[in-house]
Design a protein around this nucleic acid. Structure first.
Lengths: 338, 338
DNA sequence: ATGAAAGCGCTAACAC
DNA sequence: GTGTTAGCGCTTTCAT
């Protein structure tokens, strides 16, 4: 079936292309009668304006890109959910790009987006990202970039995060309060903002309680589950840790799996707390104490900032530094003295 | 910073626009020397061709749409992951649309996509969808549609599913083997293909074992967690069921929550099996017996079919009916005789 | 091997 | 209130 365009509508109505175009966009200088006729016919023929033509002409795409490390991850899935909800309210389209923690892919995506395919970009950077030139290049071409969760270090960037340092300090303190003295930290890439902040909060809590730092208790986990599992098993078997603070959910899951495999009981032998948006945290054996981030709201907030920038309510150069609070939800994995 | 276009490249190289365009697309009738010069300059200036112009001219967008009920859902997140991996291999872009199980939204998205914004569509229909006219309209405009998981009933559709009927029969038989006699089914919308098939498999297993169907044990769950929770609580308290087969993961989670709240022990008092892609199934209390779908592969397969159609390796009208196998993974939530 | 020119469908400035 | 027209950046046919 041939696609119907504005020219055909015009011909069928004995009107000019311009009139039809304006009628469809509800322009003020078209008579009510004409508008109705045009809209009626357009609806009847299932006319949908060609977005490529419109984007080309207006130099606007009504599309945003979301660049994230992964999607099969409760946190990012929820954040994307939030982003989508705002995009839909604004009749925008959402393109998804997954870096799988690969810096080259992230650069490639960013580079492509210089083309003008999208009006703005939301990004949570990969664990391998070491500089932000590829993202700054977008801003230089007037494509606003808003960072969420794993953000740029640049002072003038727009970023939405949670109180990672404070939450991590709290999480670690929580373990200390529960009687842990040898607390391990399963850290995420120290290239990322959250990696540094979460480790920072951990170190702060140790310092606050005069507990010396033992570097062998800080495990830099990566992207490979088997490798992480081996490191964690080593930690559990030989490092005599009695508490574990995992910077991200997947490391906690691996910890649970290893504890189960090695017959180490949580919380009796080791207590576990983790950043996590796991829906089933309370149903685990034992229920997992979590620091739960408002992932959906972070997505919504990041998208709102982006749209406010696109609508010129916020100047592109204005820094934003919105920090939402995470929630420490205490469950049995850190329950005290047995 | 001004965006660089083909015209500027041409001017800087003292070449015509046409030559530059051809050189960039590696056309045979451009000399090697010219190609190199063009490509070098393009790279140096970070030139990226304007996709709107290209799409308009070629009537192709290098973009596909994915329409799914939700994204904060292990199954769909994994499927999207698979889809994205194939899209990336083909240098395609992926637009995400979430229906939140709303038929009107699904129609709206489909309607918009008549515009030519995308070259093809992957869809898992909403639980509220009762007819497929909106999706057939896309095919009539030569935009191929491939269904996955929740598919169209139409005989000539391209669909990728799992063996829902057989897996459900097996799941129910599994409960029967474990000693259950009053088995409840937490069903998903009977408008969906999977809703009907999963219930069908359940009924078949009952029939195979000469167990009479008790309609009060079939609960049609919806989209509202509280309402589902109430129905399930009612089931657990008053319907004397000793086995539950949940058609989707979230109903199993609600079941666990209700059992915990009502102090009903799994599997002693009631055994539970569910379709689920929960990563933590084995860490739950008790570990949940699941029918696990190859979600990532379903996504990959669906996307492959779509690309093969776009590349004319498969005729658009050709039906496809690919059925991947799910896996029943037995865990403690259905363990026998206590 | 390179270039001129038409035109994809739409928008917007400018007539009338 | 409606119409004419140029042009967004690119691809592609047809000359040269």
């Amino acid at each position: 079936m041939e696609r119907v365009n504005i020219k055909q509508l015009a011909a069928m109505l004995n009107l000019s292309i311009a009139t039809v175009s304006k009628a469809l966009r509800d322009s003020y200088d078209i008579s009510k009668a004409t508008k109705e006729k045009v809209i009626e016919l357009a609806a009847r023929l299932n006319y949908e304006p060609n977005p490529h033509a419109s984007s080309l002409r207006r130099n606007k795409s009504k599309t945003i890109a979301v660049i994230v490390p992964e999607i099969a991850n409760n946190y990012f899935a929820l954040a994307i959910n939030g982003i989508e909800s705002v995009a839909e309210e604004n009749s925008f389209h959402v393109l998804i790009y997954l870096t799988h923690e690969d810096f080259e892919k992230e650069k490639m995506f960013a580079r492509h987006l210089l083309s003008g395919r999208v009006d703005g970009v939301l990004v949570s950077i990969s664990g391998a990202t070491t500089d932000y030139a590829h993202l700054r290049a977008l801003e230089q071409k007037d494509i606003p970039v808003v960072y969420f969760d794993r953000v740029s270090e640049a002072e003038d960037a727009k970023r939405i995060t949670t109180d990672d340092f404070e939450s991590s300090r709290l999480a670690t303190s929580h373990l200390i309060t529960k009687g842990c003295t040898r607390i391990a930290h399963l850290a995420i890439s120290q290239h990322t903002s959250i990696g540094k902040k979460r480790k920072g909060g951990y170190l702060q809590a140790l310092a606050d309680h005069n507990i010396p730092v033992d570097d062998s208790l800080i495990i830099y986990c990566g992207n490979y589950d088997e490798k992480n599992a081996a490191s964690i098993a080593d930690l559990l078997l030989y490092k005599k840790c009695d508490g574990i603070f995992a910077a991200v959910e997947k490391y906690a899951i691996t910890t649970y799996e290893q504890c189960s495999a090695l017959n180490i009981s949580i919380p009796q032998q080791v207590k576990v707390i983790a950043f996590s948006n796991l829906q089933t945290a309370s149903l685990l054996n034992p229920p997992l104490t979590t620091i739960t981030q408002p992932a959906f709201d972070i997505g919504r907030e990041a998208a709102s900032i982006l749209f406010n920038t696109l609508n010129k309510k916020i100047p592109p150069g204005d820094p934003e530094n919105i920090i939402l609070k995470s929630l420490l939800i205490e469950r049995d994995s850190t329950s005290g003295e047995w």
